[in-house]
Nucleic acid binder design. Structure first.
Lengths: 408, 408
DNA sequence: AGTCTAATTTTAAGTCGCAAACTAAGGTCC
DNA sequence: GGACCTTAGTTTGCGACTTAAAATTAGACT
């Protein structure tokens, strides 16, 4: 309730966190470079990194010449300090992946999943996590946490509450369910899948180095992860970024959300195919959405109708992106999601042109539009990112470090 | 370039700032209450407030019983510590207002202004500021700073750069021009007028107490000030929040920005009147926009056409607001601007209903939609807010306190 | 006057980051 | 091969902070 802005020696924690994060993101660095990058004095860097090495979080990694003098000793985050697990709860299955601390994948499991109760999903998650850890021969005690990406909005609070209409979840406390289904007391982190995928692009993909980015994700659904000032923007109740249900054609096509003219009804896979179907005047050949969209794109060079549908799609999408540009004024737009990548691969110029036509000149000139680099399946890595982020943030083992800061 | 995260005794500045801000916003408080609110120990509060009192920033303000023991001494910000000036540069004139530190208005001047060169405006601002200070009998040396709200985007940097197409400004360095035209070296703060008005609503109006708010402003133009986590959101180059030029009807009415289907083309004053004109099939009676819109609203109970135009307007506006709700997930929407207030006074229910129809259920349930409380002319107070914010932020006199922190 | 209660101030630690002095580890040069 | 130079990283001494605990107000009550 109160601003709760205490400050004592959390200053030290701050600096530990800054240094550890710098090491994590900017590769092996010498103490000297750390000092320059962080603005901290060499003395403090030496002192703090000493602690980090003692704690096992950081290890030395060779040395490098410094023209003329004592060589610099490189430091880096210790990949073996611990492991993290990322879970991607999708509409048709779950993926569970195990990583070391630097997010190198060590093992992965996929499970098909017919629509089932939250409790069933939770127990599947718990056992799959156990399995993936065991299969990699990793001791359970080294797992620092489990991140879970879900296809719906996640209200963060004392315990995360998931609302995911597409899989029939309403007010599900996934954390509690998973905790109940598993013996180990690993810290759990639940987050919207689009946001975890966005964070993955920020850490390892097309978002690297930028502080204001919108990751636009187009698949069956349409969503966006908005990164402002380096962090994923959540809004008051963590449901920010619902770009897909933004009105782009007032009074237009009905959307599965119940409203008219949502962007998703035009550029979501279903919307694209439905428009194609209507333009052709006859049914499309069977197959799943993904291959049908691929077929549509393939057909474009031969079929006027297909080309027109794609062209219109690029127009709508450009207008939708322009709205993001005007409202958020990012420096970069990353287009992702399986449909987004497919469209982008063939239509990026058109999409950019449409964006330009709809955006204001000034903010438009700031942006670059790029394709995502991690492919359409980065939800699990992104989820695994969550426990790592927690570690970097506190710069201390996330398992059981109840300091007085927790009272907040 | 580097994260530049140093930390030494800026911790003290932090705490000074926290305490001063708390006193500013939460009225007179005792040291005891300050300690509770800030989380700082009583000792520190005593120590820091002692300094603040010595510096003249804070004064004692009576005392209040505490059941049984020593009475609590109330502290508050000293309104007489200094003065601030707010300038509203509009399309047709400028307003200059003088306030004490608690933003009580002491004097105000209006100047009509035909479109003129940036340099001419700057020199008018400089002389008007001088005049308003003199007319209130205030010593120029007590002026802590001058905030200037302008009708265009402001790129913040070493020196602010203003782009304001509606008054023909492109790349204007207003700060430098005003500084050159005035003898006094008051700190200048330039910001977009919508953002200053938004900040005014946050500090004193309908936004108080909330941390995630969108202030939707509708006048001749349409804009929004987005407040995230308590601060005005600027984006990468400070042009965020250009809600008016967001596409709401793909391929729709042409907008003065050159694009088609912008929200502003539907709910901006000109857009409303133009639609009304077309619906009637004949010209509207003369008069300025503001009175013509008022006439339209007056006519609604009698005229089917007028009623329909307003109804449609509420629909478009609701959809536009729903887009803000879906993307930003605020806890509150404040509707302001002269046209926004006029529409809101008569159509709020309809606007809310349209918002509900277009927004997702979950984020919609979080919000309340309210009318602005400061009237349509809060740009100047909002601008005056800027030097005060700077004062609260550093908790030290903003005139010439070049500490080493400035190197950042 | 004496006693109580609760708000502030003082006092006595314990932390922290930094500047300066110092040590380590190579390379150069005669 | 040893004196000397250069740059990296450590140690030391200091000033600045916050806090817990003890001491000191200030009224109210008896």
């Amino acid at each position: 309730m109160a601003p709760k802005r205490t400050t004592v020696r959390d200053l030290r924690r701050q600096n530990r966190s800054t240094l550890l994060s710098t090491l994590f993101f900017d590769g092996p660095l010498s103490r000297y470079e750390l000092s320059r990058l962080s603005g901290l004095s060499a003395a403090t860097v030496s002192n703090v990194t000493g602690e980090l090495v003692d704690d096992g979080l950081v290890v030395e990694a060779g040395s490098v010449d410094s023209d003329g003098g004592r060589p610099r000793v490189l430091l880096r985050v210790n990949p073996a300090f611990g492991h993290v697990v990322g879970v991607d709860v999708g509409e048709t299955g779950i993926k569970v992946e195990l990583f070391d601390l630097t997010l190198t994948q060590l093992a992965a499991f996929d499970h098909a999943l017919s629509p089932s109760s939250p409790a069933a999903v939770a127990s599947l998650i718990a056992s799959a996590v156990r399995d993936v850890v065991a299969s990699a021969g990793v001791s359970a005690s080294t797992v620092l946490g489990v991140g879970i990406g879900v296809p719906g909005t996640v209200e963060q609070g004392a315990t995360a509450v998931v609302h995911a209409p597409t899989i029939g979840w309403a007010g599900v406390r996934l954390e509690e369910l998973v905790a109940a289904a598993s013996e180990s007391a690993w810290p759990l982190y639940v987050e919207n899948g689009a946001k975890t995928q966005g964070q993955a692009e920020m850490w390892f993909g097309a978002g690297r180095g930028a502080r204001h980015v919108v990751i636009a994700l187009i698949g069956s659904g349409v969503g966006a992860a908005v990164v402002t000032d380096g962090g994923v923007y959540r809004g008051a109740t963590s449901s920010a970024g619902e770009w897909g249900h933004t009105t782009i054609v007032y009074g237009g096509r009905p959307c599965r959300c119940g409203a008219l003219g949502c962007l998703e009804a035009y550029v979501g896979a279903e919307g694209i195919l439905d428009r194609y179907r209507k333009a052709r005047g006859r049914e499309l050949p069977g197959g799943d959405e993904q291959s049908t969209v691929a077929a549509l794109i393939d057909a474009a060079p031969r079929s006027k109708t297909a080309a027109r549908v794609l062209e219109e799609t690029a127009g709508y999408l450009g207008a939708g992106i322009a709205n993001l540009v005007n409202l958020f004024n990012p420096e970069r737009i990353v287009l992702g999601g399986w449909a987004g990548l497919a469209l982008g691969a063939h239509q990026l110029d058109r999409i950019v042109a449409a964006t330009r036509a709809h955006a204001l000149r000034h903010p438009y000139e700031q942006i670059s539009i790029e394709l995502g680099r991690l492919g359409p399946d980065a939800v699990a890595v992104g989820a695994a990112t969550l426990p790592v982020a927690a570690l970097l943030d506190r710069a201390a083992d996330p398992r059981k470090p109840a300091t007085r800061a927790d009272i907040a």
